[in-house]
Amino acid sequence: MRTYILRRVVVNIPVIWLVATLVFFATSVLPGDFVAQRIAAQDPTSTDPALRQAQIDAVRKDLGLDKPVVQRYFIYLGNLLRGDFGISYQTRESALQGMKEGLPYSLQLALMSLVISILTSIPIGIISAIRQDSLIDYVLRVFAILVLAMPNFWIATMALLYVVRWKLWDVPISSAPLLWEDPGASMRLFIIPAVVGGLASGAGVMRLLRSQMLEVLRQDYIRTAWAKGLRERVIIIRHALKNALVPVVTVLGLSFAGLLSGNVVFENLFAIPGVGRRILAAIVARDVPVVQAFVLVIATFIVFVNLAIDLLYGVLDPRIRYS
């Protein structure tokens, strides 16, 4: 077990290195330069091109951008190994600062979506499987297939428009409070993106769980359980559900990791200052160290969530042994 985890961690190191390399070179070929943009914005009246070029050169030297790309790449890697993610061009603070500030918002949104997704998909998937081809099964399947076809941003937009139109509740779109700061206002803001995101990932999970359950319910040990005279609830939950859950956990884990890395669409639509909104802003502003730091942290995170999912398999299915 310990050697398995160790081996997985070692295998993940080249992946993280590749992510760092890819994002470094992708950001260094971005057209448009932060320094030139910033200087032009600061001093739009200056007409002397030589003076402006001198200013630009000075700032570039200050930020270490005057060195060739390959040299900068090795400096960047060296700094990374020392845990230095660089300094944001915009705020002059650590590039991770924005991540730290944005993470609580994304975490709250991700957790709320995950809860809604689990609460809807698992009961619905079970009901749909044990009442196969009944009316309720058809209704639930049509619901799932419709939700999967509807674009997230569209459902969220329509929900927001109608909440405002019918004055159902007041959406605090400009303040973005966190749950522990102002629970009521926070719920009013986060409930729409959480429900929409949760239902969207829940619909996929429901379909997966249904087909898994159908497969499991045909197994011999389920017939044995019925023959032993166990109660239906015990058979469904302890014998069938637990065995159908392994692929479901993968999908849920991956969608949670995706949500935690920031939901760019919802965070923009509802003006939530989470990770996704910040990374979009950083890319548009060409704030290269921030983009690099965000991508690296998110990628590391996704890689380790994958590892955690694999380890969870062993808990759900003791036949899976890692060596």
């Binding site: 950001t27 995706g258 890395s261 990374i279 890319i283 990628a299 996704i302």
Partner: peptide, 21 residues
Amino acid sequence: RIVDTLQAFPPLVLLLLFGQV
């Protein structure tokens, strides 16, 4: 490992980077 790398990227961020290049 390259496939892992592509999948470890947040998809929208990769698209944004491609689009901005």
